Simulated assay, not measured.
Amino acid sequence: MDAYQREGETEAQRLDRNWDELLQEFRVSQTGVQILTGFLLTLPIQPAFHGISTFERAAYVAAISASILATCLLITPVAMHRWLFRQRRKETLVHIAHHLAISGLVVLAGAVVSVMAFTFSLVFTEAVGVVVAVCGVAVFLGAWVVFPLSLRRRFAGKDRSTSP
């Protein structure tokens, strides 16, 4: 039994459980990134948009590009599932979906940080936009990478039934 398999669980059951867990994660992230992308797509048709600075335009382009890419990465497992359905490729699907989820979240963080730079630059100054974006990078790295990896290290080797 591998470290990610529960006692008495078959390989097929483990893959089904892993796929179900991934789907729940995708549901949360897909909704957020789709709303963000939709909102960003409406900005260029606003009259005031054409008066933005070069920095603000660059931050916007970075944000919309990252948001569209994150949308693609976070929805790709659904398309893959349709193409691989009933092909007995769930292990491949779970493995690739895991990597797509991580990649999608990294790109989503980039989109949100770019939106932060864009918004704070519009409201205050470009310098404030940069500072806020740097702070955003630190927050995302801390919350989405450092904290989970520290928990993973802390609970490594301990009985999984007692860990969060």
Rank of each mutant, 00 (worst) to 15 (best):
I45M: 14
Q46D: 09
P47G: 11
A48Q: 14
F49Y: 07
H50M: 10
H50A: 14
I52K: 09
I52V: 09
I52S: 07
S53D: 05
T54N: 13
F55V: 04
E56G: 03
R57N: 08
A58R: 08
Y60F: 12
V61S: 09
A63H: 02
A63S: 10
I64T: 08
S65T: 14
A66M: 12
L69R: 04
L69E: 05
A70K: 03
T71H: 07
T71I: 05
C72S: 15
C72Q: 12
C72R: 08
L74D: 06
T76P: 01
P77R: 06
M80L: 13
R82F: 07
R82D: 11
L84W: 11
L84Y: 11
F85M: 13
R86W: 10
Q87H: 14
Q87K: 15
Q87C: 07
K90F: 07
K90C: 00
E91V: 05
T92E: 14
L93I: 09
L93D: 06
V94Q: 05
V94S: 05
V94G: 06
V94T: 07
H95S: 15
I96Q: 07
H99P: 05
H99A: 06
L100G: 05
A101Y: 15
I102W: 11
I102K: 11
I102N: 10
I102Q: 10
S103Q: 04
G104F: 02
L105Q: 12
V106Q: 04
V106Y: 10
V107R: 00
L108A: 15
A109M: 11
G110W: 05
A111S: 12
A111L: 01
A111M: 04
V112C: 08
V112S: 09
V113Q: 00
V113N: 02
V115A: 06
V115F: 01
A117V: 00
F118W: 11
S121Q: 04
S121V: 00
L122D: 08
V123D: 09
V123I: 13
V123M: 09
V123H: 01
F124L: 09
E126L: 02
V128R: 07
G129C: 02
G129T: 02
G129W: 01
V130Q: 13
V130N: 07
V131H: 08
V132A: 12
V134E: 00
C135V: 15
C135H: 08
G136I: 05
G136V: 06
A138Q: 00
L141E: 14
L141M: 15
G142P: 01
G142I: 00
G142S: 11
A143T: 04
A143F: 03
W144Y: 14
